[in-house]
Each structure stands twice: as structure tokens, then as C-alpha cells.
Simulated scan of single mutants.
Amino acid sequence: MEQIKHWIAENSTIYSIIKYVFLVAFVLVIIQLVRRILRKHVTDTAARYKSQKGIEIIGYIILIFLSFSYFTGNIKDFTLVIGLFSAGIAFTLQELILSIAGSLYIFIVKVYKPGDRIEINGIKGDVIDVDSIYTTMMEIGQWVSNDNYSGRIVKLSNAFVFKGPIYNYSQDFPFIWDEFNLPMKYESDIELAKSIIIKIASRTLSEYTSNSKSQWKDVVNKYYIEDALVDPTLAITLTDNWVQFNLRYIVDYRKRRSVKHILYDEIYKEIQKTDGSVILASNTLELIKIPEIDVNIKQNI
């Protein structure tokens, strides 16, 4: 015991650092235990997620408070500790601080939250978690088409909220405008084609149109933005090969792919019932005449 006391007296700084590390480890273990208990006993998903995040934030506050009180009260050579700690990790620490600041910015400004579909730093996906350092997303796109999950879970530093634009598909206005083109032959009944497309679009999209109108009014009142038409619209363009119908409509951001499939399918079925009055166009190559080729073969005897 006398030797231990003598060593502690001679190496008080090292002893204080070791004691501080154990104290931090103890607090972190307590945080994890409390989170595990909440995970097992809180059945509601939203309440479980929020309670675990609350415990995590409280734990960080306790660690910051203990660090300040411990360093200023017990370690005399505090500048040496800071110098050793900051040497070699200055850039990492800067990125870490920026990530923590980004997490506070996300929660306070409500840039996005779990459940939102966003695109940030060229990555699109659904936010499934936001912690003090990272935003976790279920990726959309890449090698799969349209708005399907790729199956990859992406962790992105919260520092990226300060480094570029953030596209939010669901905040304030959970609808997007989409469109597609339908080429029709010039000999088609254009008025009949227009009525078919508008009728099917109005019937299929009626729910999305009615739900989006009230929410779009809230967006117009909240932001400096012009009012926009949310009803399906049809525009016609004359090209060298066909009459092009451009259908523009509003849809729930999660139903874009399925709704486009329904529209294509219903419009095609109605066009088939017109008995040739409306004909879809396509790129074709027509040979008018095959040139005559005169071949003379001379045989040497």
C-alpha cells in the first residue's frame, strides 16, 4: 500500500487521467444499460426511439459536465493533457465537432427527421436514425431503378448539412410532381386520345390531388412561393415523327413508381378499345425500294 501511495504521489497526472478514463467508461456503460432496458420494456416504436435518444443526449451532457469539473479541479498539468490529446488528431477533432454541431442543427432547425426521404451529398434514401455524429439512411436507387431500396444502409456524417444542399421529399409537402410522354401517330384521333388520358389521370390521381391541395396552401402561406396547379395537366407537342402527349401530375413521393405503372396500364387498355382510332407511335425504319444491283461474273477458262 505504501508503494502504491508513493507511486500515485509521484505520478498524480497519470493517475488522474486513468481515473478519468474509468469514470467515463462507467458513465458510458450506465447509458448503454439504460438504453437496453428501455429497448426491452418500451413497446411503442416512436417512444422507444425518442427515449433512447434522450438518454444518449443526457449522457453526453453528464460527460461534458464531469470533464470540465474534473479537469479544472484535479489535474494540475491540464495544458499537457490537452496538448497530447490534440496532437495528431486536430483534423479529426474538427470534423467531429462539425458533426456534433450538425446534429444540433438538424434537431433544432428540423432539417429532417427519421422517416423523411432525403437526398444529401448525392445519396438518396429514407432516414432511419439520427444520432450525435451520423445520419443513417436506407439507400434508394443506384443499381436499382426508380425509388426502390437498394438494400444498403448508409451512414453519413452530420457535418454534410453545412456542405451542400439537402433535398427533402416529405417535409411540409409529401408530394412530388411527375410526368411521362406518350407518342401518338398523326392519323390518330387526337381529341379522343386527350379525353382518354385526362379521364384516366383524373380518376387514378383524384386522392393525391385532393390531399395535396390543402397542404400546398400551407406551403404557399409559409414560404415565399407562387401558387401552382396540382391537378393533372396535358400538353401536346408536334414532332417530326408523332404527336407527343406530356402528362404532368402530382403524386405521393412513396407511390411514384406504382402510380406510373397504373397510368400506363390503364391508358394502354383504353387505347386498345378504340379499334385503331388512337395508335401509339414508335421509331420505325421504312424501306421504300431496294436498289438494283447488276453483278457480272467473268470466268477464266
Rank of each mutant, 00 (worst) to 15 (best):
I225E: 06
V259G: 04
Q244K: 09
L263C: 01
V220Q: 12
I196G: 02
I225H: 06
D265Y: 04
N211K: 10
I262A: 00
S258C: 05
D227N: 07
S206K: 14
S214H: 08
D231F: 00
K222M: 10
D231Q: 10
T204K: 01
R203D: 15
T233M: 12
T204E: 11
S202L: 13
K255D: 13
I250M: 04
D240E: 10
R257C: 05
E266L: 06
Y264E: 09
N221L: 06
T204C: 07
S212H: 05
S258Q: 13
D240P: 03
L229I: 12
D265M: 05
K194Y: 00
Y208G: 03
L229D: 14
S202R: 11
W242A: 15
Y223I: 07
S210C: 03
R203P: 00
L263N: 00
K199D: 08
T209S: 11
V243M: 08
N246P: 01
I200K: 05
W216G: 08
N221P: 08
T237E: 12
Y253S: 06
I200D: 05
Y224E: 14
K199A: 03
R254W: 02
K213D: 10
V220K: 15
Y264G: 10
V220A: 14
Y253F: 09
D231H: 01
Y264S: 13
Q215G: 11
S210F: 13
T237C: 07
F245W: 07
Y253C: 13
K199H: 12
L263D: 00
Y253G: 01
P232T: 02
T233G: 08
T209R: 03
D265I: 00
N241E: 08
L229G: 14
L205F: 03
I200Y: 05
R257A: 15
D227S: 12
R256C: 02
I236Q: 01
E207W: 11
W216V: 02
D252G: 02
T209M: 01
A228D: 08
V259W: 06
K255N: 13
D252C: 04
K255L: 05
D218H: 15
K255Q: 09
D231L: 06
D265C: 10
V243T: 05
V243P: 00
T233C: 09
Y249S: 12
A228R: 12
D231K: 02
S258K: 09
K199T: 06
Q215I: 15
E207K: 11
V219D: 06
V259P: 02
S206H: 14
R256D: 04
S212C: 07
T237Y: 12
S258L: 11
Q215K: 09
K217E: 14
A201L: 01
H261Y: 15
E266C: 00
S212Q: 00
I225T: 10
V243F: 04
I225K: 09
H261M: 14
N221T: 07
T209H: 11
Q244R: 07
L247H: 05
I262N: 06
A228T: 01
R203M: 10
S202N: 12
W242M: 14
A235T: 09
V251P: 00
P232I: 05
E266N: 13
D218Q: 12
D265T: 11
N246K: 03
S206R: 12
K255M: 09
F245D: 02
A201N: 02
Y208P: 05
L205Q: 03
D265K: 05
T237G: 04
L229Q: 11
I250N: 08
